[in-house]
């Protein structure tokens, strides 16, 4: 088990049906997650990062989704499992944390019951044992009065406390892998810090693998071991967190870094990526997908069939356009007159 990655995604393509056609929201994604590793997937809305997470969990509506490729987890391909077999993986071996704690909990069920439900599904524990474990879990996720919260309904808790309950649900059955989809986006900054610390703490104790989906590079910097940057359904760059933050290579990654206001850039102009994120129907299906947004880079810099290549040990970049990439001098902001 030691050298085997915990999760290995190979050439995953997730397509959704719109009208009569299928459009790939996740395209040819390969990614591994090891035990005790936090892999962040970063990108803007519509890049396919959440679709990727839901594909691993098998939570896309089957009748409108086509999944191709392989998702190997503990020696089995999740995509070939039946619904029943998949239900045994969900919640037991892979836990999931959702973005918005206000909506992620059933308003008519007490927090205790919602945490216990995972155990009911996956174990034969007695109700007393479940209760004990639930209260233990609540304590573990930092809830000050677990006996009381056990009996409370979600609306009686603050956002931060609810997110702790959501985390308790995700880790209730000691999963090997936790997928956290924007776990702190809906929270205030001080609560965000607490939740990040909690996740790190839990991970240190349990050696769980974590897939952290986020748009916030700050959260990535604080949490991740390895980072995959997604654009338009593809991974455009993967590297360990230190390399990526010190030496980002892909033009999209570099643009992203330049567009966040940081303490060093006070009152300077922020970098604006020209053009707009293409919609699922209008994704460029061949060539470099970022080409249209860096028009000043000549055609010959791009590959015809851009692949994710290892440019230095464990640092992968898609397309050759990064080699001679430079920011355009006249950064006039987004003056495109088009309508998406």
């Amino acid at each position: 088990m030691s050298n085997q990655p915990l999760l290995q995604i190979q050439n995953l393509r997730t397509s959704f049906r719109i009208g009569d056609d299928y459009f790939a929201a996740v395209d040819d994604v390969s990614l591994t997650v090891n035990e005790n590793e936090v892999v962040a997937i970063v990108g803007e809305s519509g890049c396919g990062k959440s679709a990727l997470a839901m594909s691993i969990m098998g939570l896309h509506p089957q009748e409108r989704t086509k999944l191709e490729g392989k998702i190997n987890f503990k020696g089995k391909n999740l995509l070939s499992l039946s619904t029943n077999e998949m239900n045994k993986v969900r919640g037991k071996e892979i836990g999931m944390i959702f973005q918005d704690p206000l909506t992620a909990l059933n308003p008519l069920m007490t927090c205790g019951k919602q945490i216990e439900e995972s155990m009911t599904v996956h174990t034969n524990m007695s109700s007393e044992a479940k209760r004990k474990r639930t209260i233990e879990l609540l304590k573990k996720v930092g809830i000050p009065n677990p006996e009381r919260t056990y009996k409370q309904y979600p609306h009686e808790l603050s956002g931060g406390m609810r997110q702790r309950v959501v985390i308790a649900i995700a880790v209730a059955c000691d999963p090997l892998l936790v997928i956290a989809d924007e776990p702190t986006t809906a929270l205030d900054v001080t609560i965000q810090a607490q939740i990040m610390d909690l996740l790190k703490d839990l991970q240190n104790q349990t050696k769980t693998g974590i897939i952290l989906i986020t748009h916030d590079l700050g959260v990535v910097a604080e949490m991740a071991d390895r980072v995959a940057v997604m654009y338009a359904g593809e991974i455009v760059e993967i590297a360990d967190v230190h390399t990526l933050f010190k030496n980002p290579l892909h033009p999209y990654t570099r643009s992203l870094f330049n567009s966040i206001p940081s303490s060093t850039s006070t009152k300077d102009r922020l970098h604006v990526i020209q053009g707009i994120v293409p919609s699922l129907k209008n994704l460029p299906r061949s060539g470099c997908r970022f080409k249209d947004r860096i028009k000043w880079i000549g055609d010959k810099e791009h590959e015809v069939n851009p692949l994710l290549r290892e440019v230095s040990p464990n640092h992968y970049v898609r397309c050759t356009c990064y080699k001679n990439f430079h920011f355009s001098d006249e950064d006039v902001g987004d003056m495109n007159y088009g309508i998406s």
């Binding site: 919640g91 959702f98 059933n106 439900e117 649900i169 209730a172």
Partner: peptide, 29 residues
């Protein structure tokens, strides 16, 4: 399509139980 239904599915709750325990009660309100 509510989030808490997704949470329930992510717990591994079977489809029929997702309906009886989570969806119907909320829909009958």
């Amino acid at each position: 399509i509510k989030d808490f239904v997704k949470t329930a599915r992510a717990k591994g709750v079977s489809e029929s139980k997702v309906y009886t325990r989570h969806i119907f009660r909320n829909s009958l309100l």
